[in-house]
Simulated assay, not measured.
Amino acid sequence: MATPLAFTGHSTHPMAAVRAAFANEQYWKDRIEAVGGPNARIDSLAINGDQVRVDMVQTIPASELPAQITAIKPDGLTIPRTEIWHGSGGTVEAYVDGAPATITGSLTVTEDGSGSTFVVDATIEVKIPLFGKKIEAAIQQHLTELLEREAEFTDNWLSSH
């Protein structure tokens, strides 16, 4: 049974501005550098009108992980992630390199009257008997923190551009 990941972030900027950032190559470069973790990178970025696909690799060093994860991945986590945006919605897929852990879900950005709202509705699944749920909970916590940093980064980036 997978663990849900539900995140809602708010921006003071309208949906059109947020979507315009997502269609800006410099935004992705700046974001991965600011919040992607050590040695994070963008593997590919394709922008075609309102369709955006970004393949990135993010990392979480072992020093930031709980013992139940470092017992399996003592060098930290490498997380390939793909976001595909079209219009005001999209999808996200990620996995933990070398571990039976996957994240899949949907992305939306909508107007909310005072700016916009960004929503991630995903599931985390770790296929390890007995410990899978504990690891899913730890991943959920770290992903929520990452999504908070990404939302804050996006709002700040838009304010300065």
Rank of each mutant, 00 (worst) to 15 (best):
G113V: 06
A20H: 07
T154H: 14
A21F: 05
I69D: 02
V92A: 10
V126K: 04
D155F: 12
I32V: 15
D112F: 01
A20M: 05
E148P: 00
A34R: 12
T82S: 15
V52P: 00
S159M: 07
I135V: 14
G105V: 02
Q141E: 12
E136R: 13
E150C: 08
G105S: 11
T8L: 10
F118P: 00
F7D: 05
Y95F: 15
N156M: 05
I47T: 01
A151H: 01
T3L: 02
G87A: 03
T59Q: 13
K73D: 00
T78I: 12
R53P: 02
I135K: 00
A71P: 08
S44L: 06
D75N: 13
A71I: 12
T59V: 03
T117I: 00
F153D: 09
E83C: 04
E93G: 10
E145P: 06
V54G: 09
Q51A: 07
A62Y: 03
R53N: 12
W28L: 02
A62R: 00
A46N: 13
E136N: 10
D55V: 14
Q68K: 11
E93N: 05
T8Y: 11
R81P: 04
S106M: 03
P38L: 05
T102E: 07
Q51G: 06
E111L: 10
T70L: 01
G9I: 06
R149F: 02
T91V: 08
T110F: 02
S88K: 10
N24Y: 07
T102R: 15
I124C: 09
H161C: 08
V120P: 09
S63Q: 13
L107I: 09
K134A: 15
I128F: 02
G98V: 02
N48I: 03
L45I: 06
L45N: 12
R31H: 14
D112L: 00
A17T: 04
T82D: 13
W85K: 06
M1S: 12
V52L: 01
V126I: 13
V109K: 00
A137D: 14
L5M: 10
L146P: 04
T12E: 08
A122T: 03
G90F: 03
K134C: 07
R41H: 09
T144V: 07
E33M: 11
T3A: 04
D50I: 02
V109Y: 11
I128P: 13
E93Y: 15
S88R: 07
A151L: 05
S160A: 14
L107D: 05
D121M: 00
A40R: 11
A34C: 12
A67P: 00
S160E: 14
L146Y: 15
A6P: 04
D30M: 13
G49S: 04
I103N: 08
I32T: 15
P74R: 09
P100I: 03
G115A: 08
E25N: 07
P80M: 12
